[in-house]
């Protein structure tokens, strides 16, 4: 294979791990975002507080610090060693989920009040209104910012290389040590991450188009 393509096979294992972490992290992030975003709007003050604290803590501390804390400090508290991959998925999910929660909350709040009133006038209860009227409309508003967050998550997966996971980035560092082709290796890493980001963007665009047919956002008031 011509250089720099010949570097690719040695990066494949790392790429696979990066993809696993990104996928697992995304699923967790979306789940946490929905839970905490809805939690912020709960009528129960305890639920609201828990959601708020989670969001502030994970948005307020650095993702890398969180990784270190979960990987090095938490095992001391728990008395057991945690798998580095698992910590990566969990921390990235929690971190991006906290940002996603704000997206969920503000999307729900920006569904016009008239929609909730109309649902109430049709005797729907809070849960039915949320499930059938508010969420389907809010999800459309969430998609673009969520797309950005998933790209942030993909980029953050590189951080797991610092807690011993041989992801794409760490595989690149090893490969550089082996080959000393520094510019090529790091250039290749950047290109791979860039392509993955483009893929996320494309998928989100498609999803948006698929979900948005026939909608108008123009609900007055």
């Amino acid at each position: 294979m011509p250089p720099p393509i010949d570097l690719l096979p040695s990066l494949m294992d790392g790429l696979r791990r990066t993809l696993v972490i990104a996928a697992g992290g995304s699923v967790l992030a979306i789940a946490f975002a929905l839970l905490a975003g809805l939690g912020c709007l709960s009528r129960d003050p305890i639920v609201r507080t828990v959601a708020r604290v989670y969001i502030e803590v994970f948005r307020g501390t650095s993702a890398l610090v969180q990784l270190f804390w979960f990987y090095f400090a938490l095992p001391i508290l728990l008395g057991l060693r945690l798998d580095a991959m698992l910590v990566g998925v969990l921390v990235l999910g929690l971190n991006i989920g906290a940002y996603g929660a704000e997206v969920v909350r503000s999307a729900i709040e920006s569904v016009p009040a008239g929609q909730v009133q109309a649902a109430a006038a049709l005797s729907m209860n809070r849960w039915q209104t949320m499930r059938y009227i508010v969420l389907p409309q809010a999800i459309l508003l969430m998609l673009p910012p969520f797309g950005n967050l998933l790209i942030e998550l993909l980029k953050s997966t590189a951080l797991v290389s610092m807690i011993t996971v041989t992801d794409l980035t760490r595989a690149g560092l090893f490969l550089r040590d082996d080959t000393l082709r520094t510019a090529e290796v790091f250039g290749m890493l950047l290109l791979i991450y860039f392509s993955l980001s483009l893929m996320i963007t494309a998928v989100m665009r498609g999803l948006e188009r698929w979900l948005s047919h026939g909608q108008d956002y123009g609900g007055r008031q």
Binding site: P112, G114, Q115, Q117, A118, A119, A121, L122, S123, M124, N125, Q128, Y132, I133, P136, Q137, L140, G214, Q215, D216, Y217, G218, G219, R220, Q221
Partner: peptide
């Protein structure tokens, strides 16, 4: 027992006309 019609309609934009009408009877 009460039904209400609003000045600004407040139709559900994500549902077809038919689903706007059937949603509450089915769900509620």
């Amino acid at each position: 027992k009460l039904g209400m019609v609003f000045q600004h309609f407040h139709l559900f934009p994500h549902l077809t006309v038919l689903r706007n009408i059937t949603a509450a009877p089915q769900i509620v």
